[in-house]
Amino acid sequence: MSKSISRRQLLQWSGLSSASLLLNSCGSNLWSKEVGQAIEPLNQATQALLLTQKPVPEYSLEQIEPDKLLINTFAQTPQIDPAKYRLQIEGEVNHPMQLSLNDLQTMPLTSMVIQHVCVEGWAAIVQWGGVRLQELLRLAQPKPNARYVYFKSADGYYESWDLVSATHPQTLMAYQKNGQSLSADNGAPLRLASPIKLGYKQSKWVTQIMLTNQLMPKTGYWEDRGYEWFGGL
């Protein structure tokens, strides 16, 4: 009898030791949400501090890695008729707009060769061509209280960015990849592309850009499932 009690006690003690708490949490997501909530404000402040409007150094065309850009999609790939496509810009702006693909393609084209970094750990050097989001927002004229930019996609994907990152000179609404028209898999007719955010922030098939003065409860498809909101590089 006394033997079994002492064994139980021993198990209790070992269960309380920090080492076994650590081991018990391995393979489960115990505490990972709380840990993220505790540390994310500090990580985000650090990233915001590192963020400048200075362009990130680019690569040469020879350095493009066409095979390395993997396709990640949360649902199906929408097929969008380029002739019927419209981009809405609305929310906290003085001039809400609706742009056709032709409207976008007659605006100044910006091309960049940058590194696309996926949260999963892979990266690819890609050329993107398109219109600076900065330029689109200049036309739409954000109201002084605008602080966030929401992106809605044809497949139901949604994202939100801080306005500072959205107006970075290398944040593009892209319709070209590696010198060719964007394919449906990569987000045709229009997608976000930027070297300063992780891949899941770079929505494909964007149909709506909405400026807000605050973050809404839903901040992004993957963010609502646990990824960091800022996702800065």
Partner: peptide, 27 residues
């Protein structure tokens, strides 16, 4: 090996999935 590469068994990982692992790592 990328996506077809060998994975470490679950009992050697912390966080439950990628987002949880990143939370722990960056804390």
């Amino acid at each position: 090996g990328g996506r077809s590469g060998w994975n470490f068994p679950d009992y050697l990982t912390l966080g439950g999935w990628l987002a949880g692992g990143r939370n722990w790592h960056f804390a």
